[in-house]
Structure formats: C-alpha cells, structure tokens
Amino acid sequence: MSQPEQRGIDPRGPRFGAGITAVLLLVTIFLALLPTAGAKLAAFVLLIVIALLFAWGTFAGIQRHPYGLLFKNLVRPRLAPPAELENPAPPTFAQFVGLLFTGVGVILGAGGVEWGVWLFAAFAFVAAFLNSVFAYCLGCQIYLLLAHAGLLGRSRRGETLHA
C-alpha cells in the first residue's frame, strides 16, 4: 500500500478496459462455436491473447495495463474529471479472476478440449460485461467466496496480488 503507484485511479478506466475485453471474448465464443478448424484455432489464439492481457493486468497492476494507457491518452481527456478516485487493488484483483477463467480455457483448449474454450470464455465474458456495464466489482463479490473455498490463503494473496 505504500508504493507510489498505489494512488487512486479513475474508476472508469478499468470499466472501459472490461468493455474491450467483453467484446473480444464474444468474438472468441463466436469463433469457437463455428465448425471449421481454422475458426476454432483463431478462437484459441484470441483466448491466449486475452489471458496474456489479464496476466499483464494482474502482475503489472491495472495502472500499467495497455487498455488503461489507451483510456488515459484517448478517452479520459474527453471526459469530465472523475467524481472520485479508486484504489487500484480491486480492479487488479478482477484481472486475476479473469486470468483464472481464461487460463483454464487455454489449458483445456491446449489439451484438445474444444468446449473448454467457449465455456471459460463465456464465464470471463459474464464477469467482464457485468464489470463494464453494471460496475460489478469482482473483488467485492468473489474475494470472500474464493477465501471461503480456501483458494486464497493469507500468504498466497500477498504474493499474487500485490505484484
């Protein structure tokens, strides 16, 4: 919490990025459902790209995500200043959840499980769309569920999420 980049961010930035992600995930799902091998391969590659972007957001922090830079340079200058700034930890956690979903999809896809690609892309889409359109906060809704299930321990949390 003492790092200088932990200052507040414009809450609209992550929602803008989630919107782009949601559209890319819809394209992934559409391609994965098509019968041709080429379309399925394209869906798989696109899911890898989306997972890598989530990994970027998770490990570099939401402030250094490429969509965040896009927002800062192209979108934010056209908007009124935000009503208030937000802590970057919750949207960075949301990136981690996105990485989990798309990561499982990529692993299943690599193992030849075709439905894994569209199914996990669909899970990630639901999260990204709710985040973007309804300001759904994954950190608020999912963190304690994962902690309950024992998926997030005390020590692991510090390592994975404060990178």
Partner: peptide, 18 residues
C-alpha cells in the same frame, strides 16, 4: 446458430446484471 448463442449470452448476462 453461433451468432444466436452470442446474442442469448449477452441478453442473459444483462438480465443477471439488472
């Protein structure tokens, strides 16, 4: 059919959000 699935997914997620 794939496009219909995508549209249905968007509609269902919107309902969930509301």
């Amino acid at each position: 059919a794939a496009a219909a699935v995508v549209v249905a997914l968007v509609a269902a997620t919107t309902l969930l959000g509301v």
